[in-house]
Design a binder for these strands. Structure first.
Lengths: 225, 225
DNA sequence: CCAACAATTAACAAAAGCTTAACACCCTAG
DNA sequence: CTAGGGTGTTAAGCTTTTGTTAATTGTTGG
């Protein structure tokens, strides 16, 4: 289980601290930088998923950093948000022009910032054609990854395939027989309890409440409270 | 027993209140939202069965929200209705295009809205090929559930199969012999009273009046008296 | 009305079926 | 070659489901 990494770049320690605190509380892993150079260096080093850039920074401003990052393939589809004081003369247009995903003016309202980040993440996932959206989960076949809010859950192959099968049949019972056929194939012989054990491991990782047991029949993926 | 959940999204508090009142009086559990973001968040959180979306809303309009929801497996077959003022320039086509089930223009006539919702629910059930419709029940093999109005009843395997057998022979007597053959198979030996006990358990869960005893012969599923 | 038979019902017992932890045997990347 | 992740197996509990029994309560034909 791996947290989503956020890199926050601002030269004011107060802002840095406030944002760090809020984001960490929300389950993100936070990295900070104080100027343009440091931002680039840390971005390369830690490969964050989300980058918050203050515009006014020593050694290359936020716009420049944004433009530079966007030229790197690795950051082509990461989330980049520009933070700016309303008074500063940079325009919103310049921000989007440099490739930013969103543009937030200070004073920053934490709740609103968090929901905008979430919205961007949702959109990012949604645009990804190989990802299956199910309630709070985005199940990404390409990266073998389950995204759940700020959490990225990495599952090994068998567990992933099993979860994917169940999720793609949302709310329908998948029989044990079907599971064997789809995950192990007709000719492989595995003991009956193997399925249960895999279900167990998935439940531990994604939470107990999403996979329901239907005794004597199979399992189903559903979201009820 | 669980009520059917309706999420109503509109930025005008008056409309929200009027609809809430009407739907609650009709037995639904109501959740409200005031803008697009809140709608998405609450939909994810509460998993409503029916969603009413005003088109004109701050932070993502109804069409967008509808489109987003439809990409989520969990909402693929929930009921989504678009509400709109006749004057607004959005077209009906856009609504259906985004995956809405119905399109209602304001001013809203409550009685008509309620009956359209009911019609959609009925159709949803009827269109489900894996569910058997008998009287007030929908017996759903895929979900392994009995749906009785807003109530979902869970039955263990033997009871489910027995009820399914009786329901599929609606209004016809099923002999004890036939029941043994179909539910237990030719070679399993169970005592005669076992059937009675299972019938008992089903009656407790779905109500006494649906399964009739035909002395000396068997049982039949019917809705009379 | 009353045998005589059939079904209801509650209580109990047995058996399925699932959960869970522990372990063992791969592989494979370092 | 070795540690660690990924898979499969086993076996000891548990819980739920299923089956049995027996007392009781209809029901019905004579």
């Amino acid at each position: 289980m791996q947290k989503t990494k956020v890199l926050i770049a601002d030269d004011e320690p107060d802002i840095l601290e406030m944002l760090s605190y809020a984001l960490e509380k929300d389950g993100y892993e936070v990295i900070t930088a104080h100027d343009g150079d440091e931002t680039l260096k840390k971005a390369l080093k830690y490969q964050p998923d989300i980058i918050l850039l203050d515009i006014m920074m020593p050694k290359h401003d936020g716009i420049e950093v944004c433009r530079t990052l966007r030229q790197d393939k690795a950051f082509a589809d990461k989330i980049i948000m520009i933070l700016t004081a309303r008074s500063e003369e940079y325009s919103e247009v310049a921000g989007f022009d440099a490739g930013a995903d969103d543009y937030v003016t200070k004073p920053i309202k934490i709740r609103s910032l968090l929901s905008r980040i979430e919205a961007l993440q949702r959109r990012r996932q949604k645009d990804n054609p190989s990802a299956l959206q199910v309630g709070p989960f985005s199940i990404d076949r390409e990266r073998y990854l389950i995204v759940h809010g700020a959490e990225e859950i990495k599952l090994p192959r068998k567990e992933f395939e099993l979860l994917y099968l169940l999720a793609s049949m949302y709310n329908k019972v998948v029989t044990r027989e079907r599971i064997f056929d789809e995950i192990w194939g007709k000719d492989v012989i595995v003991v009956d309890r193997t399925i249960d054990v895999h279900i167990r491991r998935i439940r531990i990782k994604i939470g107990e409440q999403y996979i329901q047991t239907v005794k004597g029949v199979g399992y189903k993926f559903a979201i009820d409270e």
